[in-house]
Design a binder for these strands. Sequence first.
DNA 1: AAGAAATCGGGTAATTCGGGCC
DNA 2: CCTGTCCGAATTACCCGATTTC
Lengths: 74, 74
Amino acid sequence: MTATTQQTRHDSPEQLLTPGEVAALFRVDPKTVTRWATAGRIGSIRTPGGHRRFRESEVRTLLDELTRDAETGR
Amino acid sequence: MTATTQQTRHDSPEQLLTPGEVAALFRVDPKTVTRWATAGRIGSIRTPGGHRRFRESEVRTLLDELTRDAETGR
DNA sequence: AAGAAATCGGGTAATTCGGGCC
DNA sequence: CCTGTCCGAATTACCCGATTTC
């Protein structure tokens, strides 16, 4: 059973997302997400290989803010 | 101080993590963690059967070092 | 002693990185 | 200023069968 949550033991403090997944959530190019990270607009964690991972909670918060912004007519 | 250092369970001073657990922390494939060990980017201990185990302290340090959080300001 | 899950290997697609340009 | 796309190079993900772990 391995699909959404993979925790065999211990606990993960936070769930991480790949650039592609974040890009899909915002409907933008993965490259754009990378630029956000470079610009410091979103926190990122690097793998030893140099690839970026993003905190799901942070992404969700950002996404939620944008949604709320649109609704408020901002 | 007569029976305080006694660990009823086999709790080693160094907690060891499986490739799957390390992979979950970085949100990568367990195979990738193996590749890191082969490349010498992370220390690994082999079981008599050839499986790899990783020191939790080392993994934590590495993860913490590669974590560029949303620092100060915004 | 037997079984399910995980990790070994290798080999081949799919992502991501980085810079530069529109 | 911000985003999308093209390129080459590097990293990572999924495929298999066999072995190890618990």
